[in-house]
Design a protein around this nucleic acid. Structure first.
Lengths: 232, 232
DNA sequence: GCAAAAGTGTTTGGATTACACCCATGC
DNA sequence: GCATGGGTGTAATCCAAACACTTTTGC
């Protein structure tokens, strides 16, 4: 066989990962941005991303890159789409793979590190302009996330450890941009394994709501033993 | 900022695409394989894949690679997962992105070309052993496909242009490994826009079934105008 | 008591299920 | 006629939507 160009010339690409970290606060979904202190796009907002080392597998690289730039560790990252437009990076052919995660913003502290100058949780519906094709990456990944909210219990990655049923309902109403009936919502989630805590909301000027948490152990068990399918 | 290794050394990767082309025949889902006539893994079965040119966008590369090896053109390819284990390719760091498609096997003719020595439609449940990590790629992509069958009208990409309702039912029964009631299946698909053709099965030794085809135009219209959601 | 949100029960119509039955064709 | 699948109707049941109502807290 003959390539149009020499085989060795194919080994002239670079490969990067970009992490879209989503969280939920003030009733809105936010994404974690960094201000770049490095060319190209120095001084501009971007999602945390960097080149993969030659001997590094992708999931490991994703965790490393995220922690180098934001000091976040122990975040469960999932692979998203890969973006390979030849012009997406001004310095050469860099193909990038999106990784994303859902986190509880209040449970962790993101801090700028390495060549990140600043970090920012930006609400998804008012993103600043972003470096490279990061806008496209964030938006495509956000669409994946919203689809996933329907089939997997990932809403609990966004909600606080202890949440009220109303908070859960509001998250879905916000993500799907619909209004739901309180009574019907509660009936619908009856099959989801939640722990009804003996604890109530505090400092509210109305009847305090009960707190719940997700019963992850029971969920796993249901999936394995009874073919349980989460569906919202 | 400082990298552990020199920046230029990052431009020593290669990037490939591998195409998993699925079709349906004899009541089973098949995947298109080629016999490699090129090192590494010469003489072994693999899915069609090759390196991406430096100035080539991914979707274009996917179509090119598929047609170079199998002479298939005009196949609508979708992006799947990206695989980047550092040891997946014996000749260097090659990260690969899976592309997949669903086709009507009878409507097209795959022929070995370029360095492919032979092509084969192999049923998914009896795959031979495959080069590289192609088994993993095919299986992960197959799982995506089966999930997608539930939410998108892709079963019509697999079925012949004109099909009977029973053929459609059998495809779902096979893919989900369940049995369905004939009458109930027909009630369930009532909302799917099908064209009831004035044509019947021929050469069957029982009452000939009516033929249908998918009304793609009406489907598009429904999605746009009425927020129609395909669901099986 | 009032405002505000928590939390529950009832009705209704539409979808899903199980199952029975009739129809058209080849041989 | 009979074997084989094509095609349809019905009753029981489940589920989701709409809506009204009661409860508990702060002020």
């Amino acid at each position: 066989m003959s390539y149009k160009i020499k085989f060795d010339h194919f080994f002239s690409y670079s490969f990067s990962l970009d992490c879209a970290i989503f969280g939920y606060k003030d009733g809105k979904i936010h994404v974690l941005l960094i201000k770049r202190a490095m060319e190209p796009y120095s001084g501009e907002w971007a999602i945390p991303g960097n080149l993969v080392y030659p001997d590094e597998d992708l999931p490991i690289a994703a965790s490393r890159i995220l922690s180098e730039l934001t000091k976040l560790t122990d975040v469960e990252l999932h692979q998203g789409q890969t973006f390979g437009n030849p012009n997406r990076h001004p310095q050469g052919r860099v193909i990038t793979c999106a990784y994303f995660a859902l986190v509880r913003i209040d449970d962790l502290v993101a801090e700028a590190d390495s060549w990140a100058e600043e970090v920012l949780w930006a609400p998804m519906h008012e993103l600043p302009s972003l470096a490279f094709d990061h806008k496209e990456i964030v938006e495509s990944t956000y669409a994946d996330l919203r689809r996933k909210l329907q089939y997997e219990p990932i809403c609990f990655d966004l909600l606080p450890e202890k949440f009220t049923l109303n908070e859960m309902q509001q998250l879905y109403e916000y993500a799907y941009n619909v209004e739901m009936d309180k009574a019907n919502f509660r009936k619908k989630i009856k099959s989801i394994p939640l722990i009804h805590l003996e604890e109530k909301q505090k400092n509210v000027k109305h009847r305090p709501a009960n707190l719940f948490s997700f019963d992850a152990d029971r969920y796993k068990q249901l999936v394995e033993e009874e073919n349980y399918l989460f569906r919202m």
